[in-house]
């Protein structure tokens, strides 16, 4: 059998540009769905999204709309708790357990003055730039910019 006849699993690649709490939820829910349905998944954290990879930063994002100095966020948080929605930490743990890959944008680190020591190393699989994203995305069935 030719090597390229071996079917690679379909892949989802998501750029996480936003650091907003609700958008981090979207990225993790979609990528966990992809992994659960037999796809590979990569999350490329850049710009405001990269802040969520800082130590202790995962849950710190504000709401993308109606944040109202955090009042909106706590309202949504309490409604999500009532609806038994998993925490971002829980979703991220599942993402890693199912083999999801996390890429941190090196240029953002440079611009924002973020060092590797500032980031939660347990979450990050590799560091890269646009070439890494294109490399991941070119054979992805799903690619999103969140």
């Amino acid at each position: 059998m030719m090597a390229d006849e071996i079917k690679k699993p379909d892949k989802a690649t998501i750029i996480v540009h936003s650091g907003d709490m609700d958008k981090i939820y979207s990225a993790l829910i979609i990528s966990n769905g992809a992994l659960s349905m037999g796809m590979e998944a990569s999350l490329y954290f850049t710009f405001w999204g990269l802040q969520r990879l800082q130590k202790g930063g995962l849950e710190k994002g504000s709401l993308s709309k109606m944040n109202m100095m955090g009042i909106g966020k706590s309202m949504i948080n309490s409604r999500m708790k009532k609806a038994n929605v998993a925490s971002l930490e829980h979703l991220f743990k599942d993402f890693k357990e199912l083999g999801g890959k996390v890429i941190a944008c090196e240029m953002t680190m440079e611009i924002m003055g973020v060092n590797k020591e500032d980031l939660d190393q347990d979450l990050i699989d590799e560091y890269g730039a646009v070439g890494t994203y294109i490399h991941e995305a070119r054979d992805s069935k799903i690619t999103l910019f969140i």
Binding site: G33, S36, V85, A86, D94
Partner: peptide, 18 residues
């Protein structure tokens, strides 16, 4: 039971892997 999106799907996937 009582879990919502995407937990049922994820837990199914984890069980299948194990």
């Amino acid at each position: 039971k009582g879990e919502t999106c995407p937990v049922p799907l994820v837990e199914m996937r984890k069980a299948v892997r194990n």
